[in-house]
Amino acid sequence: MSVIALLGAAELGLVFSLVALGVFLSFRVLDFPDLTVDGSFPLGAAVAATLIVAEWNPWAATGLAMVAGALAGIVTATLNVRFKILHLLASILTMIALFSVNLRVMGKPNVAIITQDTVLTPFYGLGLSDAVLRPVFVLVVVLVVVALLARFLTSEFGLAMRATGVNARMARAQGVSTDLHIYAGMALSNALVALAGALFAQTNGFADVTSGIGTIVIGLAAVIVGETVVRSRVILWMLVGCVVGSILYRIAIQLALNTDFIGLQASDLNLVTALLVAGALILPRLGNPLRAKGGTAAKGGRVAG
């Protein structure tokens, strides 16, 4: 694999690490299976691209893309909290609706912004090549997001949100407004996913209504791989694990698709993804068979005695 391909994989991994952080919030912190991300990712790209084409400031366009993603998360939370629709079904309904919303926002299936100014434009004068500038810029954004998110999740409000995900009934007994924290968590989760979509559009030069297909799988894969590689219960390292998992996942995909003797093609991407996620889930469960046998024998001895 060439250096350019490696940098491209790292860049894409960093962009989707924001998706992984959003998925981490919904799945791991709130225990809320959320498929809205398949719609909020292209929503962020659509809003940012449409506003940039309309000659808005790229930073303002990116901020509004995050607001749009947050609203999508609030819609899902409202369906679940207010109308008692099962969380999985509520997120599917929002995801389906967002496909039409994204088409409305763009007015067509895709919008090209390759000739427009983006958030990257002011940094092109630094002397870095495009292949290096893009991943470095996204890395800085991701590091800032990780630092802010770690600070948030260790604050009083963040701890209450984590308690809501662990045991909502106990959290309510302690005076925590679990409904409020679900709303806030879902809004923040999908705002991060929409930010990823906005950056994806600006680094790749286009927004497409189908770009969100499989986003939830990519986010889950990154979270699972990250938890396998970075084993820690400290919230900062758990967030770092999401970022590392996303980068490793993208590099593994790139290596698999560029290895000639395996014979994989771009159309095999979903197969490779399924195998990687399955491997990440299975390997930690295998453990050490010798240790397992020893533990069983020891238990048997104690029972017999």
Rank of each mutant, 00 (worst) to 15 (best):
R28N: 14
L159D: 00
F16P: 04
A292M: 14
A131T: 13
A221Y: 06
Y183Q: 12
I92P: 08
G219F: 13
A292K: 15
T76V: 11
G39M: 10
R231L: 09
L239A: 08
A60R: 08
V146D: 01
P122G: 05
S211K: 04
L133E: 04
A196F: 02
S232Q: 11
L139H: 05
F200K: 05
L14T: 04
L188V: 07
S2F: 02
N102Y: 00
A160D: 10
L257N: 04
A221K: 07
A150N: 06
I262E: 04
L255P: 02
L51E: 03
L89H: 01
I224M: 10
I282E: 08
G44Y: 00
D208H: 12
Y249A: 09
V217A: 15
D117P: 07
I96W: 11
A187I: 15
T50L: 05
V67G: 08
M186W: 09
K108V: 02
T62R: 06
V277Y: 04
I182V: 15
V145A: 10
G300A: 14
K293A: 15
F137Q: 06
T228E: 09
G212T: 08
L192D: 07
V15L: 14
T296L: 13
G305E: 15
T215M: 15
L264E: 11
L271C: 03
F83D: 06
V144I: 15
S100M: 09
T228V: 10
A131I: 05
A196E: 06
A160T: 06
T50D: 02
T118K: 01
V37A: 12
V142P: 03
A97G: 07
V176P: 07
L14H: 05
L199M: 13
I262G: 05
M170S: 14
L192H: 04
V225A: 15
S2H: 10
A168Y: 01
F123R: 03
C242S: 13
A61Y: 02
L248R: 12
G73Q: 14
T164G: 03
K299Y: 09
V244S: 07
I235R: 14
I52K: 01
L264Y: 07
N258E: 12
Y124I: 11
R134Y: 11
L120D: 00
R302Q: 10
A207V: 00
V15A: 11
S155A: 10
R28Y: 07
G125P: 03
A77N: 10
A207I: 00
V136Q: 03
L143H: 04
V81A: 06
L281N: 06
N102M: 00
V144G: 05
V217R: 08
R134K: 15
S17W: 04
E156S: 12
A191P: 05
L103A: 09
S17F: 08
W237T: 04
N204Q: 13
I251G: 05
I216L: 15
A112C: 01
V81N: 08
S40I: 00
N57Q: 11
V119D: 01
